[in-house]
Structure formats: structure tokens, C-alpha cells
Design a protein around this nucleic acid. Sequence first.
DNA 1: TCAAAAGTGTTAGATTTACACCCATGA
DNA 2: TCATGGGTGTAAATCTAACACTTTTGA
Lengths: 224, 224
Amino acid sequence: MTFYSEHSKVWVSVDCIIFGFDESKLKVLIGRRQMDPGRGEWSLYGGFVAADESLDDAAARTLHELTGMENVFMRQVGAFGSVDRDPGERVISIAYYALINVKDYSETLRKEHGVEWVDASELPRLYSDHNQMVAKAWKLMKQKMRTEPIGFRLLPELFTLTQLQRLYEAVGGEEIDKRNFRKRIKEMDFIEKTNKIDKKSSKRGAALYCFNHNSYEKSPDFKL
Amino acid sequence: MTFYSEHSKVWVSVDCIIFGFDESKLKVLIGRRQMDPGRGEWSLYGGFVAADESLDDAAARTLHELTGMENVFMRQVGAFGSVDRDPGERVISIAYYALINVKDYSETLRKEHGVEWVDASELPRLYSDHNQMVAKAWKLMKQKMRTEPIGFRLLPELFTLTQLQRLYEAVGGEEIDKRNFRKRIKEMDFIEKTNKIDKKSSKRGAALYCFNHNSYEKSPDFKL
DNA sequence: TCAAAAGTGTTAGATTTACACCCATGA
DNA sequence: TCATGGGTGTAAATCTAACACTTTTGA
């Protein structure tokens, strides 16, 4: 009998804010709750933390459950613990955000789980405190995206500078000057121009770039 | 019988990183653990989250328990949840940092609880993951201090510009140019010069300033 | 031939940094 | 009288922001 037992235990869950990007819009993966309480309401995807797994592991497992994806970039958003945040029982939840490339997520799997990509800026009212979670996740992600090259996780391996710019505009919520943007990109040697051309988005065709991890590790100076 | 019961519950605690400032050093309040596991090790002050209180409330209550203080500025640092972070049982902990004025904390009370102010930059090895908690708390606090006028919570009501500068130097970890610092302060009308003079720190005496909350609310432009 | 997106430099203004001396006073 | 911390301005360098036209090509 230790001092622990004087205190009460609570359920702990993780909720995932899964961000994607679709040409010009930041997206979040949400679905209709399949269980009570709150059945039918829009909600983030989440799960309970098991006794033998860390919070980070629980978040990764939950994401994997939904998407089949591994080694996804995830960061903790914070703990949400109002007493009545879950209408059923006392559950505190640790929110995590994840960045994935929409195209890497099988449409079949997505439909099976009944989740949808919704514009981050036009989210419906979500279950419990999930809107707050998204807001905080977005804010943190935006901050981190200025100083670390994590945005590439939302893009295909090869991307055009316009795509990259649209991504930063979508996340930052404001337009960016094309020439100033490209000037800054050119200074970062780890964003490499390939000899491939994207012909889908324009008649003229746009050069495709890629992010070189090794090169970044050597001189990690990122600012956008 | 709901779906909750299939899952296991865990203990949830809060740990407080209580920051203070002592003329030129950022301080953290730590003490020797009074209970097993880890009895005798240096540790942050913490407590368990009760069934009927929010995480924020638990943090405020824990801080109050130790200091008798209320309405203290506190912010969540994040959730720490490695499986074996607590050697006794599975406990996840939510860290919070608090900013207090060292002089507002009764020395008597401090000694009663057996806690001490230790230089944040020279902390000993702490129990479990508490060093990580402090590191993250410091980082977050530093960030927030650049864009929000929270530093004043660590200073007396009236302070000299040198004290303020030392505070920013201690938190930021690097020296600041006196003239540039004062130039920026002068632009912020909510940092008001009083007609009082501090004679303790110099023969000549230094003007005492105060932070005017109302004035700040009217035009909140803070950057340091 | 024209619509649509790609690509490219320069300049003015704002911000940031570096820097050194006189002042007032108590010991 | 001198040691100590208080108080003050300017100039160079850097960074940021604004801005418009030419190119390519598929329809």
C-alpha cells in the first residue's frame, strides 16, 4: 500500500490533429463519432492510452490505426483536462498533431474509417474541446514551420515552388510575395531544384524541387 | 457498462516549475522528495490531480499548497508520459510553470516545506524527468516573455530598468546592450517611470518604473 | 493569339546592432 | 576624490517589404 492509492485514477486518451494540404488549403482529418457520448458529432480521431505505452506511443499507434502510416511527424499539443470535457466520464486527453501527405493516405482506408479532409479554416463545431485542440495545434505548427523544415511533410517528395508558397500561405493565413519568397528559398541550399518539370499546374511547366535531408543536417539554417 | 471500462486508468499528477528572480539569476524552487520512490532526491513540487478538478485547477491548488499564493501566472508546459517515468507506478504528469516574485513568498513557509531557490542554470539532477520539464518550461517562458509582458511577475511592483534588463538577460541567457534595451523600453508607454528612486543598488540612485496594466490593455504592443 | 502560371532584381524604408562618455553620489 | 552604477544618441549594416514585366506553351 503506497501513497498512490489515496488518489484517484483517470482515463487518459490521445487525440490526433492530422494535418494535410491540398494544393491551396490546409486540411484536417475529422469524422463522425461512432460511439456515445456524442455519437454522430464531428470529432478528431483519438484513442485511449494503454497501461504499458507512453503518450507518444499511444499517439503514434492511434494514427497508425487510422492511416496505416508509420514514422509520421507528430508533436504534442498539450493536455486538455477540464472536469466535464467528456460528457461521459472523467477523461483527460493529450492532443498531438501529425503532418502527412494527403496522397499517402489510401482513399479506401479513409472511407473505411469514415473520416474526411476538411478545410482547417472552415471546420464545423467539433465534439467536446476538439476545436480548441485544433486551434492550438495549428498555432504551434505554424510557429514550428517558420524555424524548422517540417512543411515538406505535407507535400509530395517533389514539389513546385508555387506549391510550397501556397502551403506557407495556407498555414500562415496570409499572402506572401512571390519574389521575396523565392529569394529566401534560393538561399537554402537544401531545397534543391531537380531537372524534372511539373506540367500539371501550368502550360509552361514548373521546376520540381526536393528537400535534401542530409544537406539540411549539415547546415541547418531555416527561416521562413 | 460503457466502452470506457475496457481501458485502464492511470494516475495523473501535476508538477510545478516555479520560477523566481533574484537580482541577476533566474531561480527555480526545488526540494528533496519526502516520499518513496525517490525519497531524498531533488525534485519539483507536485501533486495528484483529483477526480473533480481540472488540470489547471490542480496546478493552482498545488502551487497554493506550497506558497499560499493565489492568482499566480501559470501556463501548461505539456504532458510527460513515459511508461517508466515514475519508478513506483504508472503516473503521467502535466507540467506547469509559474512566475512569482521571490519576495512575495514567505521565507518561513518556504523553510517549512523544505524547498529552496536554486539557479535555473545550475540545477542538480532532478527526480525522474523533472530536468526535461524545467528545460521545456524555460524555453516556453522565454518565448512568451518576448511577446507578452509576463516578466514583471518576477519583479517587485516597482523596479529599475537595470533589474528589468538583468531579468531578460538571465532568462535569455545572453547579455543585452543597455542603450538599445532602454530605447525599446521607452517606446512602450505602459512601462511608466515613477517619481520614486531606488537607492539600494547604487549611490546615485535609479528611477523606479512600474508596469501599467490598464495602459497595456489599451495598446498592447510588446516586443523585447 | 491569348490566357495562365513561371520566373526574375531593385530600391526605399525599417529595424537592428555596435559603440563611449558624462553624471550623481556615498564611502 | 574616486569607484560604482545610472543615464544618454548616432551611424552603419542588415533585413524587410513593395513592386512589374517577360517567358512559355496548350488550348
